[in-house]
Design a protein around this nucleic acid. Sequence first.
RNA 1: GCGGCCGUGGCGAAAUUGGCAGACGCGCUAGUUUCAGGUACUAGUGGGCUCAACACCCGUGGAGGUUCGACUCCUCUCGGCCGCACCA
Length: 1091
Amino acid sequence: MSSMSSKAPGTGGDSEFPFRYTAALASAIESAWQDRWDARGTFMTPNPGDAAFDSARPKKFVLDMFPYPSGVGLHVGHPLGYIATDIYARYLRMTGHNVLHTMGFDAFGLPAEQYAVQTGQHPRITTYNNIATMKAQLRRLGLGHDPKRGVSTTDPDFYRWTQWIFLQIYNSWYDPEAPGLEAPGVSAPGVDASRRPGVKGKARPISDLVKLFESGEKKTASGKAWSAMSAGERADEIDAHRLAFSAEVPVNWCPMLGTVLANEEVTADGRSERGNFPVYKRPLKQWIMRITAYAERLLRDLDGLDWPEPIKLMQRNWIGRSEGAFVDFRVEGSGEVLRVFTTRPDTLFGATYMVLSPEHPLVDSIAGSDWKVGGKSCPAAWRGTFAGAPAGGFATPRDAITAYRAYAQAKTDVQRTEAKEKTGVFIGATAVNPTNGESIPVFIADYVLTGYGTGAIMAVPAHDTRDFEFATELELPIRDVVYSRTFAAMKYFAEFAYSTGEVAPAWREDLADMLGIVTSDATASFVHALEMVEQRRHVPAGDVSARSRQRHESTMGEQRGSTRAIWLEAIDDLSVGNFQDLRHRFMGGQYHKSAGEPFTGPGIAVNSSGKNFSIDGLTTSEAKAATIRWLEASGNGRGAVTYKLRDWLFSRQRYWGEPFPIVYDKDGRAHGLPESMLPVLLPELENFQPESSDDPNAPPRPPLARARDWTKVTLDLGSGAQEFTRETNTMPNWAGSCWYYLRYLDPANDKAFIGPDVDRYWMGGDRSPPQFGGVDLYVGGVEHAVLHLLYARFWHKVLFDLGHLSTVEPFQKLFNQGYIQAAAFTDERGVYVEAAHVQEKDGVFTYDGRPVKREYGKMGKSLKNAVTPDDICAEYGCDTLRLYEMSMGPLEASKPWNTRDIVGSYRFLQRVWRNLIDEQTGMSRVVDAPADDATRRMLHKTLIGVRKDMESLGFNTAISKLIEFNNALASLPAVPMEVARAMILMLSPITPHIAEELYHRVVRKGQGEQRSILHEPMPVGDPAQAADDTIEMPVQVNGKLRSKLSLPAKMDPGSIEAAALSDEKVRESIGTLSVKKVIIIPGRMVNIVAG
RNA sequence: GCGGCCGUGGCGAAAUUGGCAGACGCGCUAGUUUCAGGUACUAGUGGGCUCAACACCCGUGGAGGUUCGACUCCUCUCGGCCGCACCA
């Protein structure tokens, strides 16, 4: 018998019912079971090889995104995902799986360090205190985490391996030619294996690279033979290949904070998010990870992952693959060549000028000395018309370049985005379009970015919005080289409208736009417009395309607007019916023949013939391929793929992070430390403040640089004891989160970051065929959609390539839980007030007697609307909290918290308790009699439904099924054991404490408490027993519900039809109409079509 | 600007994926218990019409389409949220 029955629980304010399920009783039950679970190690999960390991059970690895241990503690929004994974993990245990489920802490990072700067308290102490607080909060929720596996990234035993992984990456290079990126037989669900071999390349140890250089199989960058190179040259060559390397790159440098910042830590107006200090772009030597080497694999392998499509899309966009070509333009009067990247090589004939980014390295060397082009003076607009330029432009191109650079640099990102007009200046140089030998002017403009492609473009104003804007602004020629079929389609519609007098509302606006551009006569009639269309049938294709483009880009916008309104009116007058369907069919191709050509599909190249090269008449994709072939054959360029993804800036000038396992010799050359010297412990400091300065050129002085005893070391790295200096940067806080899930699997291993057997088992790499990704369910917020998930995938792939892991991807299935939102209130000044103290009366909200405004936002400290789980647990018990959070709505949806609603969940648990337990005696009310037919049917329906919902994380609907079932039980005189038992077991993943208590009071009466309900198998519903004998069959007449028939479940369609047609209400509805057709959906409904 | 997601009672939401719209919960209304409040319990609760019941009509942001049948699919449109943002 449970210990609960032996002592009187708290009264909860109702002495008449000492065993009523009150908050006091719930709390007593909850803490009693939490203690027992801890004492018995209920949630400990054995690894393969351990004594308790059961190899017959399939594995499941259920993972949460681990939290940062913040000092303010949890609010009810935080544990939403944790509760969900806990329910799922408990469910999986009860359905025969070995489940790995635990929780660690992502504990390096800025808040603890900032706190240390302010108070002098060591971040370690702050962090460990916070972890303790948070663990207590999580424990109170009854989360079934394996306590032995919950690692913290700040433990030296953990970050030792973070450093080790860094060295693995440091000591490898990416061989783009290496065949076979995956282990043989690796297959991804939903991915056609035959599509995958196209991706070549993998990480290999640096020693392989050295062998290739030694044998001459691989050429060095300089072309010099390996044997002829000095030690320094060799080291340079190797360093240039490493996957983790240091290089001077432009970074966001904040001298006042004394650190570089990630792009997302810099505000739109160029200041630090924290502190609001100025941030400068400045080249600094930093550690960088060559994640771009993996761009293609990171992109392709998304296909095999069971992730939400929006997240995959965000990663695809972030990687930003574009296919196209590099094209070389010879600069006239200089030996230089301008290389551009384009995704539209088919429009090369339309390139009428070039644009370089203001910082492009060739600008200075190719800039001309005067404003002449082809011997004549260039247009005035080319000489500088941007804000601050002198009237009439600058005296020389060089003056203009200098001024423009200053102008562009001063613009913040926001200004850049908001500026509608394109600006730029001619640099006094011309280049040659390789296709036709045409001489075209070269400009600099800030709409071309240094960081993408080659930082230079060929401008095709006819087919690129930005180029068009620039060309309009600077009076540059525009040449159409693509004939648009969409435009041809619209022309056809216009003609169709003309011949029939019928216009579909859906395309009337397109038509009006088109017609509006061909005439600015605001009073013209529709008939007149159609005459214009008639005339334009004979306009050459290239010209038509130009107009189509102008339709979008015309600077005559306002004028067009008024014209357009007139056209809309005129078109509306002519509408005689709805022709949307017709339009679909046109677009779908059914009417192509009548139109004489397809309406949709690629454009056709026009005006694209040079001396020995023509693509006229080819479709866009054909023209692209043909142009690339020509570029490669003629040596003017080549096909290429570029990515938006940048390499990963991996160092920070901060204290509270992992030290790099890197030292520098007296020549300043970096050396990776051997494994035996790990971990490199963080040195003790008393002052954690980075050195700040007003001087943007001041050198960075990370806090670690002040630990003199630590930075200077004497080591023997293979060539005798020498003096070295340690790297004083630390790793960014993404580092630990890139691999923590692996350490959960083997937390005590001091020989390796993870044992190979453990990896193969829990990540599933020992399956045949091996799994693609290892974690079976990863739950967390969308805020990590890109960075964390991309970085972790990258590390995982490197470790896979180097043979340390058995799977290609870390997270097979990802689930994004929604946020919990809450009402927040602002006073008349717009300042947030404590939401907890706001009063509501008849829909009016007041705070301290004054009216306040309500809004909804993410729960948290800043909106002063946080509700803590501790308060809710105290008032209702944590089972009620778990139940409520799961019943609020679908897990993936963001939904508003409403404390008032919790009582519904509380009442449900009370009713369950009351159905099974006598509130006066605490004894079981369950009887051994068998269930009646109706109850048993409902039991099996519920078992089937709940199981299905659990599998799909549909906890909200699972709960509603349980409530319905329990409500049905309430009307029984007593609940039969088979029903009670199933009810308790189904409830146990969601509300484990009350379920354990009921299980021991009702099911295992006095058989001891050793066996947890967690180890009880979940009962399986039997469809045969769930089936109804008679079903209610709705009968529709012409789609409207008219009657309901009660029929035997297994009735043949003929009899159903007869029954339906003989029903009085049905016959009344049919009346004098004749029955045309009877549609019978077995077990579902009948629809009678009468007319 | 481009891309994505989402609009269902007073509120949170269901709907077996094209087949009885609003399950379940909150709130509300009435009643039981109670000196009373609270708790707990029972019944009702989309809107309209009706004294009331039966019946009928309307109803998933809006307009239209496909279908025997549409919350669900298609087109357009309005509103909200999120991501990217001159990416060549």
